[in-house]
Amino acid sequence: MVWSFDGTFATLWRFLIMDLRRLRYFTAVAEELHFGRAAQRMHVVQSAVSHQVKLLEEELGFSLLERSRHNVRLTVPGEIFLPEARDLLRRADEAMRRARASADGTVGWLAIGFVDNVLWSVLPPILRDFRQRWPQVELTLHPLDRSAQIEALRTSVIDIGIMPSPSPGDALKSVALAVAPLVAAIPEGHRLAVRSTLPIVELANEPFVLFPRRMNSRLLEIIVACCASAGFTPRIVQEAEQLHTLLALVSAGLGVTLVPQWVARVQQLGVIYIPIEDLLTSYELIAAWNSSTDNPALTNFREIAAGIAGQMLFLSPSQ
């Protein structure tokens, strides 16, 4: 008999169109070297096993077994094919197991977008709890501003985004996660650093360090609006795209800024946080996702986020 078989697993993928039962029947016969015992093992009639193995041989184009009245043995191609068949069945079983697990979100992947100030608030506890409950879900994190997250959600680049309110609307759904007032971040040693609270108007003549306008930062919008309501425009002396950079600039004495109250929980060397007395606008974080997303891991992430939100949703200035 002329036959060809390169012995690699890659070659076997073309046989996926076959019924996996044929491979299971062949493996049973090859291990039992007896059609009757193989049929009993597979809980089918002997003729079904014989027929399926014959179809498998026809599909492959070579014989796997030599049959006689009282004896069954593997051909040389059959001996080579047997470990490959076992491996293929093992992989198929694993693929089905993982597919079932992915259907309930216990394995898989999830892409998360976030604005940088959530690193001081909801994101770390959400990630910690999610990792503890679903360690086999691969998480990828994308630091993006609000507008970039909205576009990434619409194009399915990310599965969920943590961003400032308001809700993006359209096909995107959202839920509130946390809301808190803004506090002033003042350099240590500054004349205002000894105050327990202060009205925002007292910052009118102070240099500010803020996000660049091109970022379309919602936090920047709120800060500028709060200053405008007090009758002044912040005098920006330095810009930075990351909150931790802005705080480093405050620590260096270059200016002041406003940050969500939860940022004050993490001590920054050289920075004093002071509540603002008369701010009418708070900063709110939401979780947003595309309503057409069918990733099961997203449901599990939202469950964790809802629990964290229940703890953090409304923060008083003393918290």
Results as ranks from 00 to 15, higher is better:
W262K: 02
E277F: 00
V107C: 14
N216R: 14
H244K: 13
A28K: 03
E188P: 15
N71R: 15
P199Q: 00
G105A: 13
D116A: 06
L258F: 08
E151W: 03
Q242W: 09
P275L: 01
A230L: 01
A85N: 02
D278Y: 00
S174Y: 15
H51C: 03
I17W: 12
T299R: 14
R100K: 13
R218I: 02
A39Q: 05
V259W: 06
P260A: 03
F114N: 09
G108F: 00
W109S: 12
L55T: 00
L249C: 07
M312I: 04
A204P: 13
S196P: 13
I17T: 15
M96V: 10
Q40T: 08
G113S: 07
A39N: 13
P234I: 04
M42R: 14
A38Y: 02
G189Q: 08
E94G: 01
Q132K: 10
D159R: 07
L88Q: 10
R214V: 10
A178W: 03
I236W: 00
L153F: 13
P124Y: 02
L203Y: 07
L279Y: 01
A30M: 07
L20E: 12
L298A: 09
T106D: 07
A152F: 05
Q136F: 06
D129H: 02
P143E: 05
R213T: 11
P168C: 07
F81I: 12
G189Y: 06
V175P: 03
A180T: 11
T106R: 15
S121N: 15
R213G: 06
I160N: 15
H34V: 06
Q268C: 05
L64W: 09
P125M: 00
V44E: 04
G108H: 00
S292A: 15
N205K: 01
S167L: 06
I223R: 04
L203I: 09
L23S: 06
A99Q: 11
I223M: 05
I272E: 08
V209L: 05
T155C: 06
G169D: 11
